[in-house]
Amino acid sequence: MEVTLVQGDITEQRVDAIVNAANSSLMGGGGVDGAIHRHGGPEILQECRKLRAGHYGKGLPTGMAVATTAGRLPARWVIHTVGPVHSRSDDRSELLASCHVESLRVADELGAATVAFPAISTGIYGWPVDDAARIALDAVRGARTSVREVRFVLFDAVAYAAFETLL
């Protein structure tokens, strides 16, 4: 598998699947989640509502992943995953790694060959970007997957530099 980095907007990526750093409600929010819902259109929210009405009535658990249409995005699917909120007293690294591994598992189920990830949990969830980059890259490299390219799409130069240093 090839791992690449891009500094830019994840909603503009032409890949099979875009990973959404979602909140557990799956109903949209701020940051990456809000941008994906805004740019992707109402089709994404409609499918998220169906998920909430079914198996995920209590929301999507942290570290898990589920797919919907990508709506108007230049991808085929959005894979929603809920990252953990960073804690100084509780090690939640396994949950952050699980977001990546589970997203790749879902990508395999869909037949996706190219997947774009944001820097999960580094926004409002407060995960230090250097540590998040290490966990994300280790998880992706260690995952058993048929995905050919994992692209980390990083919003700013600080995140890009953190990932680049470790790549």
Rank of each mutant, 00 (worst) to 15 (best):
T122H: 00
G142H: 06
R92F: 06
R14N: 15
T69K: 10
R52A: 10
V15H: 13
H80T: 06
Y160L: 15
P74D: 08
S24K: 09
F155A: 13
L96K: 06
I36C: 01
Y160K: 14
P42M: 11
A132V: 03
Y160A: 14
G126S: 01
S146H: 14
A133C: 10
V78N: 09
A159C: 14
F152C: 10
M1V: 01
L5V: 07
V66Q: 11
R38K: 11
D138F: 02
T62R: 10
E47A: 11
T122W: 00
L96P: 09
A119H: 01
C48G: 09
C99E: 00
R49Y: 11
H55A: 15
I79N: 03
L51W: 15
A67W: 14
A161L: 13
L26V: 04
A107V: 03
S87R: 14
I79H: 02
R14M: 11
S146N: 12
G126C: 01
V150T: 13
E164N: 15
A70I: 05
A116L: 06
E109N: 08
A161W: 12
E102L: 01
P118D: 01
A70T: 08
A157R: 15
G8V: 00
L60I: 10
R72E: 13
R148I: 04
V85K: 07
M1F: 02
P118A: 02
A116Y: 08
D90I: 15
I18H: 09
V6G: 00
Q46V: 12
G126T: 00
T122Q: 00
A119K: 01
W77A: 07
A107E: 09
E2K: 08
L5T: 07
L166W: 11
R72G: 13
G54L: 14
E47H: 08
G41C: 12
I79P: 04
L60H: 07
H86T: 02
F152A: 06
Y56W: 15
P74W: 09
R151M: 12
H100W: 07
G31H: 02
L5S: 02
D138R: 11
V85M: 06
S146Y: 12
L51I: 12
G8Q: 04
M1L: 05
G41W: 14
N20H: 05
W77K: 06
R88M: 15
A136Q: 11
G63V: 13
D9V: 02
N20P: 05
P74F: 06
I44A: 05
M1S: 04
V106A: 03
L5R: 03
T68Q: 11
L45W: 08
L154H: 08
R141D: 05
G71H: 09
V140R: 03
V140M: 03
G59I: 11
P61G: 11
M27I: 00
D108L: 07
A17W: 05
W127N: 00
P128L: 06
V78Y: 09
I124L: 00
V19A: 09
L96D: 06
R144M: 05
R105M: 03
K58Y: 13
